[in-house]
Amino acid sequence: MKILSLFISPLLALIIGLLFLGISRKITAKIHWRCGPPVYQPLIDVIRSFSQKSISHGAFFDFGIILSLSSSVVLIYFLPVGDLYAMTSGGLIAFLYLMLLGPFGIALSSAASGNPNSSIGVSRKFLLALAYEVPLLLVLLTVMTHYNTISLVEIVNIQAGTGMAFSSWALVLPGIAYFLILPAVLGVRPFEIVSAPQEISSGPVAEFGGKHLAFYTLQHALQLFVGLALFVNIFLGGGTLFGLLNPIAGTVWATILGIIIFLVKMFIVLVIELFINAVYPRFRIEQAMRYLWKWPTLIAFVGLVIVAILN
């Protein structure tokens, strides 16, 4: 299973990530009373980008973007999608650290280009990351303390036995907090401060074209996938649905159905997020930081206090 998922997981994540990018553009367009591009547009763009001209500011400029995409793929190996996962070493802590390698690679690459717009974008990205990591760390610590484990797979397995984490009342508050910060984690509206095309020429991406842009888009798709999948894994029980698959447990069908359930859950979360967020204008970075450090942090903190007292 692990060997198989080494090949399947990244492909699945890339395709689903790109598809979700397309879907989110389409839904946002419909909400705005526009027609919008077809759902498969991001996939076409990636393929087209590979054949187009690009510029390079040196070896380090190339290295950063390769590192970023690669580490995002490694991240996928840590992430259980239903029964699909390849690695467990280091648990959720290693996962958290690997999550930062993706943006870090892009930051190195775009700063090597010497474009000030990129630097502004990167500075915004790190500030935004600091802003959402505070509640995110609180949320993840709450979950790890509640289940008394640092293993992501184990968290999912415990939920498979007891139903969704969301249904246990101690984890309701962290769940809400994660849902509130999810758009910031995914970098979608109203938190698209980092790229902000009208202000800073797309920020970190300003110098990327051709294959660099293709790599960046793939990384972005994976990031979207990881953000949603982490929420599904931690709070919505991963690829299980209240023991629906228990009668056929262990068979190939159970695995495939598990993956499908997982993807459907991800899709539902994405759509709800889009419905809420498509109508907001973009925050300024201070507003975003103030928002993220106010309600989500407060809710997550109260959640952690409750779980710490219960233990």
Partner: peptide, 29 residues
């Protein structure tokens, strides 16, 4: 695993169309 993945993406990167080298002042404003 990171080494293998980096190697694969590096190969893909090299196989794609070659990019032109530019200096630090040649950037998009």
């Amino acid at each position: 695993i990171l080494l293998v993945v980096v190697a694969i993406f590096w190969l893909i990167f090299q196989a794609a169309r070659k990019s032109t080298a530019v200096d630090q002042y040649d950037n998009y404003a």
